[in-house]
C-alpha cells in the first residue's frame, strides 16, 4: 500500500526538518519583510543590491535563505499531497514536478546571487 500512496519512508526526517527550517524562517522572513519591504525607498535599487552583494556574508545569507525557503515550501507542498491517496502515476508526476521545479528555481536564484 505504501507504494500506492507514494510514501516509502516514515517521513520523520522531513517532519523534523520542516519544524527546524520553519522556526528559522519565522525570524528570517518576518525580518526580511521589515528590512526590505517596510520601506520602498530602502535597498531597492541596483546600486544598493550591488553594495550588499559585495559582502560575502550577505551572499551566504541569501543562499541559505533561498535554499531553506524553497525546501520548506516544497516539502510542505509534498506533505499536503501525501495526505491524499493517489494513483502511482499521479503521485510520481507530482513528486517529479516538485523536485524538478525546486531544482530549477534553486539554480535560477543561486545564479542571480552568484552573478555579482
Amino acid at each position: 500500500m505504501y507504494k500506492h500512496t507514494g510514501s516509502r519512508g516514515s517521513g520523520a526526517p522531513g517532519w523534523v526538518l520542516q519544524r527546524i527550517t520553519g522556526l528559522l524562517l519565522v525570524i528570517v522572513v518576518i525580518g526580511h519583510y521589515f528590512v526590505m519591504h517596510a520601506d520602498p525607498a530602502s535597498g531597492h535599487t541596483y546600486a544598493a543590491v550591488l553594495e550588499r552583494m559585495h559582502h560575502p556574508l550577505w551572499k551566504m545569507f541569501d543562499l541559505t535563505f533561498i535554499t531553506v525557503g524553497l525546501w520548506h515550501g516544497l516539502n510542505g507542498t509534498w506533505g499536503i499531497f501525501r495526505d491524499y491517496k493517489m494513483k502511482p502515476a499521479v503521485s510520481l508526476t507530482i513528486y517529479g514536478v516538485i523536485i524538478l521545479s525546486g531544482i530549477a528555481f534553486w539554480v535560477l536564484g543561486v545564479n542571480t546571487i552568484l552573478s555579482f
Partner: peptide, 9 residues
C-alpha cells in the same frame, strides 16, 4: 520572487 529578481543579471 526568485523569477522576478533574475532581472538583476
Amino acid at each position: 520572487h526568485i523569477y522576478a529578481l533574475t532581472t538583476l543579471t
